[in-house]
Design a protein around this nucleic acid. Sequence first.
DNA 1: ATAATCTTTTTACATAAGTTAAAAAATCAT
DNA 2: ATGATTTTTTAACTTATGTAAAAAGATTAT
Lengths: 187, 187
Amino acid sequence: MSDFIKQLNLLSPLSPEAEEDLLARLKPMAFKKGQVINKEEQICKKLFFIDKGLVKHYYHQKDRIFILKFFAENQFFTVLDSFTNQTPSKFITIALEDTETTGLDHTDFIELCEKHHSFETFARKLFAMAAIVNLKRIKEMFDAESAELYAEFIKENNHLLNRLKLGDIASYLGISQVTLSRIRSKK
Amino acid sequence: MSDFIKQLNLLSPLSPEAEEDLLARLKPMAFKKGQVINKEEQICKKLFFIDKGLVKHYYHQKDRIFILKFFAENQFFTVLDSFTNQTPSKFITIALEDTETTGLDHTDFIELCEKHHSFETFARKLFAMAAIVNLKRIKEMFDAESAELYAEFIKENNHLLNRLKLGDIASYLGISQVTLSRIRSKK
DNA sequence: ATAATCTTTTTACATAAGTTAAAAAATCAT
DNA sequence: ATGATTTTTTAACTTATGTAAAAAGATTAT
């Protein structure tokens, strides 16, 4: 059984009615390693919760790949602007490992927000958190010396280190794999 | 009279009771050019709306200044994580021009969220927008060639161009003023 | 008007990091 | 185990950008 509701309640507890209503709308979705979860230009219809697995959220630009974020166990994720405004996504989301998710449709999300004040509160806190996480990421990107970027990354993402390719880490940091390799060899 | 409520209703309309309740809690605050609105380590107590003026939100790192965002007329702003979690701010906010704001205390913000579903909905949408804006900023920062960063900036912030110093624009783009000057001379 | 201050540009130099290509190491499939 | 593929490291070269300092240009105050 998914920890969607458990994690949600940790962030902001639901009323019993809201919880029941939500539970009836959740749907499990599984993705194989390498499978696309949401492609470019596709409208993201779901708020996902990762029960198991690892996902990368990225985009292409001039033959390079830029990874905005990795999502792993017990994290909520969606394509923020595509989901919120139901507009085509500029980003791509794929599974880096076999991944099991629990999904909530956008229409259900909106209905739950309207019907249940406590769910709306959860949603508010979820987006506030997302905004803060993104702000922190901006700050990290400013600290531009690659060596420090990498040091910061391994500190924050130690649990993911052996699950990620170096190329993906470099794409996340916005540097080339060669540069990352050089950094690693330096100490 | 402030456009706080007008702009808010554009994003997400309030119930009449919520609007009345909110109105009674808003307080005008004015800042002189150069005045600190929220300093480092200070807990940000307010959600601000800018009626007039311009503000920069930044931090120091090793003798350089990094500007996360400018805020001008008709924009809501706060120190996201400091306001949300009522923790000390890592960032500094100062007025770049004489600035008039309308502020809402954090305690009032929370009470309004709890009392009025429609206000909570506004808050959810506000934070969703903030998250999206920040994500867009991350994307911009990845597009690392300085010339493009600047081109993008003048496209998006044309209305601010003649109100900002080049040094501040460089700090926003994460490049040195010398580099920015070079870019400008190139075409 | 003139001086003083602030802002922007330019120059010279050093260095971090990108690109390309190849070698080395690790992982995977048969 | 062996070969094939993927991943990581290393090397050679080029370029963009930071730093420091000075010059040029604007702005402000007296």
